[in-house]
């Protein structure tokens, strides 16, 4: 067996934490970025203005 159990366990225990932090930061930046605000407000409002038909 080339892959050692201890190595895999160590990787599993540590890697997830970094991944968690990176992903959380990315998600928060995306959600909170001021330049995205308009797009999100527009999206939230847009479903309420259905034009009663597809554009194509």
């Amino acid at each position: 067996m080339i892959i050692e159990h201890a190595f895999l366990v160590g990787f599993s225990k540590s890697f997830g934490l970094f991944y968690l932090v990176a992903l959380s930061v990315a998600a928060v930046i995306y959600a909170m970025r001021p330049s995205n605000k308009k797009r999100f407000d527009e999206a939230a409002q847009s479903i309420l203005r259905d034009e009663a038909g597809p554009w194509r």
Binding site: M1, I3, E4, H5, A6, L8, V9, F11, S12, F15, G16, Y19
Partner: peptide
């Protein structure tokens, strides 16, 4: 990610 890092090491568990 979550599933992978929890399941993959179990396939080497017979070493321990």
């Amino acid at each position: 990610v979550g599933g992978f890092v929890e399941i993959a090491p179990l396939f080497t568990i017979h070493q321990t």
